[in-house]
Nucleic acid binder design. Structure first.
Lengths: 163, 163
DNA sequence: GTCAATTTACTCGGATAGAGTGTGTCCGAGTGGCGAAGG
DNA sequence: CCTTCGCCACTCGGACACACTCTATCCGAGTAAATTGAC
């Protein structure tokens, strides 16, 4: 799995803690450089992931001086499935190549029903997607704050200090 | 996802249809060449996947003249999860790199609890694994035969003809 | 005819190249802020 | 002092190399069968 998924999720939480209390549109954008410094990851590559999130409508990008990224919608309307889909793409991990129709199966009329093996794999992936779609970033944020109540203040302080 | 998963599953069904009615140990082994011909896939690469299945105890390999592979246990004791684990390896797709402890989180005492993002991803993967583990190859075989009752005879005939 | 040693052909098994995708990087287009000049 | 114009610094966005894993392949070690010869 793409490493950017983890980065993207952390960045969204980070952005929310920074602008906590303000309406989304009033929050000052955060440039890629700062986000990269926050997690010590290569900035240009992180930028690539953030672009994917912006295209998916999860983040909003503002150009120009003092530009950067900010959340495009509240955390309770962003699921982990959204993050994964934005970064990894919408394609299924397992793809059926229909080898049943080759060799021993050659000559048989093409089956209408999909291959039962592919159907099984697809059902499992649906369970995976359903599980991810059930978890919003707001819920994850609540879990984190349950263990670390000061993380919001800490994040804002760190950001001011490094500014 | 590795393409060999699909091949492996089809090969197991193929082996079962060929030796239907006989105890597992009495069935004549099928060499990689035949299996590769049955699905028109490159034989040496298929061999690699079959070796993985043999190491996992799903297939048994017999060397020498008239050697090959045969099922090591009945189909109702082989799940799709077994196939995937054997071919893809036991590692999780998502791996947490603990970026929360770098940059903004540096200096904080290392958290005992795992990262909540990683926990969410892990829960989804567990759902995926559970779904795959619930489906045995025997069940898949039954589904296939429900739509194509003659597939066993057809498979055996094809094998004799190409022998 | 039976048995055993030898040859032989065929199989698995792991070590070896090539292609595709993810990983990491770079530079150009665009935009808002800042300063200076003019009214 | 206020407005306006131009410059500039900073940002995103997409185009460009590198590395690693998956894909595909080859050849050697090992084994069971078949053959041949002797008894």
């Amino acid at each position: 799995m793409n490493e950017g998924v983890e980065w993207a999720a952390h960045c969204c939480l980070f952005l929310d803690w920074l602008g906590e209390g303000l309406p989304l549109d009033d929050r000052t954008p955060v440039p890629t450089t700062r986000l990269a410094a926050a997690f010590e990851v290569p900035a240009p590559y992180l930028n690539k992931q953030l672009q994917a999130l912006a295209k998916a409508g999860i983040l909003a990008s503002v150009a120009g001086k003092r530009g950067g990224f900010r959340l495009a919608r509240p955390l309770d309307r962003i699921t982990m499935m959204d993050i994964v889909t934005a970064v990894e793409g919408p394609e299924d991990a397992f793809s059926c190549t229909e080898i049943r129709g080759r060799g021993v199966g050659a000559g048989s009329p093409p089956r209408r029903k999909p291959c039962d093996i592919a159907a099984t794999m697809r059902a499992a992936e649906l369970a995976w997607r359903r599980s991810l779609a059930a978890q919003s970033l707001a819920g994850i944020k609540a879990s984190v704050e349950a263990h670390s109540p000061l993380i919001g203040d800490h994040t804002r302080r760190w950001y001011e200090q490094k500014g």
